[in-house]
């Protein structure tokens, strides 16, 4: 049931692999996922590509125990909303022991498998997050 289109995720690859988003040079708002239009500045905005460091902090998190189709083998897994240092917010899986999870903790990005279409299908990769050892 999950959309497993190869071209759909191929188009998003750059952003998913390398945390490429955008930023508006007019108001310095950062967007991840990338937005082609700054909703504040509209046509006065100058939106350019921006690569995020992937460092940020956990605003909130949950542990998914009833997983959607295609994620059953990964469950239970943690997902958080991460506030990136540049200001954009992003939802991402947080790997590592659940005991370490807490709001406000610093995270860094880690490259992982996100989803497999099937045993003989394509493997989708991208960024997850891991709690930074120092926090």
């Amino acid at each position: 049931m999950h959309t497993s289109s190869v071209p759909l995720y191929w188009r998003l690859q750059k952003s998913k692999y390398g945390l490429f988003g955008t930023k508006c040079l007019s108001c310095n708002t950062h967007f991840y996922p990338p937005k082609p239009l700054c909703s504040e500045c509209r046509r006065k905005g100058r939106v350019v590509e921006h690569q995020f460091s992937g460092k940020g902090k956990i605003l909130t998190f949950t542990i998914i125990r009833t997983a959607p189709e295609g994620f059953e083998k990964q469950a239970p897994y943690a997902i958080g909303i991460i506030e990136l240092d540049e200001g954009a917010k992003i939802a991402g899986q947080i790997v590592g022991p659940f005991e370490r999870l807490a709001t406000g903790k610093r995270v860094r990005p880690v490259f992982r498998k996100i989803y497999e279409d099937s045993d003989d299908g394509i493997i989708h990769y991208g960024m997850k997050f891991v709690i930074d050892g120092k926090s």
């Binding site: 949950t62 009833t66 992003i90 939802a91």
Partner: peptide, 30 residues
């Protein structure tokens, strides 16, 4: 669960395994 999750952002939420209960759980904890 996957069908309901398609009412969320398919490319950036559903694709990482986020469910509807998950979205409201994120709001609940916050």
């Amino acid at each position: 669960v996957a069908t309901l999750a398609s009412a969320g952002d398919q490319e950036w939420e559903s694709h990482i395994g986020l469910t509807f209960a998950g979205l409201y759980a994120l709001m609940a904890r916050y």
